[in-house]
């Protein structure tokens, strides 16, 4: 296990070193990408200046709202849908197709309903994230063995109590997958919406920098988003691993 972690870090380090080398030696032109070390330095400079701080705060708070709402509402809907086998089965292909739908096309509709401002971007992040949570909650609840359902009957629990005290705790580690996806999709939704039509936010700053060939802002910001998303993802993975560790004999 440790061995694998070290090897993994070594591979990442090797890739970064290779990029650095290619960039410094001019194989990758500076116009395409600056060397990683410079991106890191630029990121520190960018974060300490107040050039993008407002944008970052804006984007992260929108993502937090979208993601939190998606997790709460998605889990509740997942529990509800899972109660009817026929419903879950019928909806399955629609969930499968959902991620092929360009949600951004509904942006004008969102503006018509929620007004201009931040709300439409939050709603898009929410809409992208919620289906991952629903699908994953249903999958997690499918894993519950029959004997646990019988046990619930033995204790004479109502369906809400059973969901809260038995089914969700049992499914807990498997729900983490959905939460991780919700984080990723709310990033995609919010930042993607900012890409298209926003005057503020990280997505807007990245597009603005791209259009002005401003690599000193664009690459550090991309790196920043990847680092934040990666860190959150890593934290949830660690939590998932801890919960699963209790379940398996090792």
């Amino acid at each position: 296990m440790r061995h694998a972690a070290i090897l993994r870090l070594a591979i990442i380090a090797a890739i970064v070193a290779l990029l650095e080398l290619l960039s410094r030696s001019g194989v990758i032109s500076r116009f395409v990408a600056p060397p990683p070390s410079e991106i890191a330095v630029d990121l520190v400079r960018l974060l300490t200046s107040d050039r993008v701080q407002a944008a970052i705060a804006q984007t992260l708070s929108k993502i937090t709202i979208a993601c939190g709402a998606a997790i709460v509402v998605g889990t509740a809907l997942g529990v509800l849908i899972h109660r009817s086998r026929a419903l879950a089965q019928t909806l399955s292909p629609y969930f499968g197709a959902y991620y092929a739908v360009p949600i951004y096309a509904f942006y004008p509709l969102m503006i018509a309903i929620f007004g201009i401002g931040e709300a439409p971007q939050i709603v898009i992040g929410f809409m992208l994230a919620i289906v991952a949570v629903i699908v994953n909650t249903i999958n997690a609840l499918d894993r519950i063995p029959r004997v646990l359902r019988k046990t619930v009957a033995i204790y004479g629990m109502g369906s809400i109590e059973a969901s809260w005290n038995v089914y969700l705790p049992y499914a807990g580690p498997y729900l983490a997958t959905g939460i991780k996806l919700a984080v990723a999709y709310s990033f995609i939704g919010v930042i993607g919406a900012e890409f298209i039509m926003s005057r503020i936010g990280i997505g807007h700053e990245i597009v603005f920098a791209y259009n002005n060939f401003d690599n000193e802002v664009m690459y550090p910001l991309i790196l920043f988003v990847l680092l934040v998303a990666g860190t959150i993802n890593g934290l949830f993975s660690a939590w998932e691993k801890r919960l699963l560790g209790r379940r398996s004999r090792s």
Binding site: P145, R146, V147, L148, K150, T151, A153, I154, Y155, G156, V166, P169, Y170, G172, L243, R246, R247
Partner: peptide, 20 residues
């Protein structure tokens, strides 16, 4: 429709709660 008080049940399958 309900398991009355005073009856205890043990199944063949492992019904322990793995999170407790």
């Amino acid at each position: 429709s309900a398991v009355p008080d005073g009856i205890g049940v043990v199944f063949q399958e492992d019904a322990s709660f793995p999170w407790l």
